[in-house]
Amino acid sequence: MSDIEAPDAEGGVVKKFMFVNRKSPHGTVYAVESLEVVLISAAFDQDVSLAFLDDGVFQIVKQQDTSGLGIKNFSPAYRALGDFEITKLYVEQEALDERGLTADDLMEIMYEDEDDDYEEKPSVRVVGRGELSKLMSEQDVLLSF
C-alpha cells in the first residue's frame, strides 16, 4: 500500500489494481472469471491494469474459435475493455517468445484517449520480464488468476 494515495475527483481513494493472468483460456475457468471480475471492477473507478504472462498470453490471441468445444468464445469481450475505461494490458515479451508468438498474433484492442481528442490508441503493451516485474511491484493490489 502506498503511503500517499491519490484522491480522485470525488474525493475517493484510487488504488492500483493489477489482474495477473497466467492460464490458457477455455481449459479452466480462470480466464473467464478474471475477465468477469475485471469488468465489474471498472464500476469502482480504480486504476486497473491487466498482465498476461506464461500461458495467459493465449487469452488475447486472435481468431479463437470455440465452436467445436460447444462453449462460448468470450475473447471478443477483451476488445470492449476500452469502453469500460480499462486501457492498460501488459503482455510479457518472454512469454510470447517461449510460445512462438509475436505481438501480431494478438487481438487488436484499442481505446479512445479522452485527453487526446478521442484518438484511438492500442491498449496492449508488450513489455520485458524485468519491466513487468517492476510494474507488479508498484501495485497496491495484485489479483491472480
Binding site: Y30, D140, V141
Partner: peptide, 8 residues
C-alpha cells in the same frame, strides 16, 4: 509486506 502475490 505491502502486497501479496499468489502464484496459482
Amino acid at each position: 509486506h505491502e502486497r501479496t502475490q499468489a502464484w496459482l
